[in-house]
Nucleic acid binder design. Structure first.
Lengths: 159, 159
DNA sequence: GCGAACGTACTCGGATAAACGTTGTCCGAGTCACAATGG
DNA sequence: CCATTGTGACTCGGACAACGTTTATCCGAGTACGTTCGC
């Protein structure tokens, strides 16, 4: 799985602590975790394309959450970065070879594909059940000072 | 996800239809679906290393299931091919940067990692609940003649 | 005729290249803020 | 003093390389069978 998923999720949680009208630049988001700026920018663009973030160019520009953290699921973030395709892709090899199912219009689905999709669906269901707000709240419960710390650093840091 | 997973699963189902003492060569298993022989062989070796198949060299050699199909789960096959690592790997970026959690011995786990592992676990649970025998039985229910067809082809095919 | 040893062909097994996707980087287009200027 | 305009710097955005993993392939080590030779 793409490493950018981890970066994107942490960045979304951090963005959930800044004032809604304040935008944070990709450079600051990267500096926060010492990540390569240009590459994180690429991931943030993917989040913007998926309408998870909104991006504003120019001075005072940057990224901000496009909607409340309660409505951003981990599944949304994964889909934005990794793409909508599921991990297992059935290539229908049973249609090839000397013993291929004769009927090319065979309506019966590949049972292996079906089983893999079932598992994939369970995975997606779990991710769709957790939001950025859930993570944020749990962090706040363990470290009450964290929101202010993050907000202040983004406000004052000199990148 | 590795494409070999699909090949391995189909091959295991096919092997479940041959007599337990009859070994099938990698060449025949590959010809059945017109797959690249040498590369399928690589996947079969991985299955053998995971004790899912047993391999015997020399004439009349080949591969056979190491245990009844009822005791081979789809999870076993995926693990054998893809490796034991989970898809998402937490790199602990929260420990990096100016605002890193001060305590390096911080016992609190990364909550994002925890959520991803939870989803991964659900995925694994689904795959562990399905066996090669389940697939085999479902195929037989839909196509009663399939077992004989496969067995005979493996017996008589001239590769 | 029977048993054992030999040679042979066949199998897996791991070591070795090519292709694709991910990772990482760079510079240009667009935009907002600020400052200077004129009324 | 206030509105306007021009400048400038700052931001994202997509186009451009480098690395690593996956895909694909090949040849060698080992084995069981069939044959041959000796008794």
């Amino acid at each position: 799985m793409n490493e950018g998923v981890e970066w994107a999720m942490h960045s979304c949680v951090n963005l959930s602590w800044v004032a809604p009208e304040r935008a944070v630049t990709a450079a600051k988001l990267a500096a926060f975790y010492e990540l390569p700026t240009a590459y994180l920018n690429k991931q943030l663009q993917a989040l913007a394309r998926a309408d998870i973030l909104t991006s504003t160019p120019g001075p005072r520009g940057g990224f901000r959450l496009a909607r409340p953290a309660e409505r951003i699921t981990l599944m949304d973030v994964v889909t934005a970065i990794e793409g909508p395709d599921e991990a297992f892709r059935c290539t229908e090899i049973r249609r090839q070879g000397p013993n291929a199912d004769a009927r090319t219009d065979n309506p019966t689905p590949c049972l292996i594909d079906e089983a893999m999709r079932h598992a994939d669906l369970a995975w997606r269901r779990e991710l769709a059940a957790r939001t950025i707000a859930d993570i944020r709240d749990q962090v706040e419960a363990r470290a009450p000072g964290r929101p202010d710390q993050v907000r202040n650093w983004f406000e004052n840091a000199r990148v």
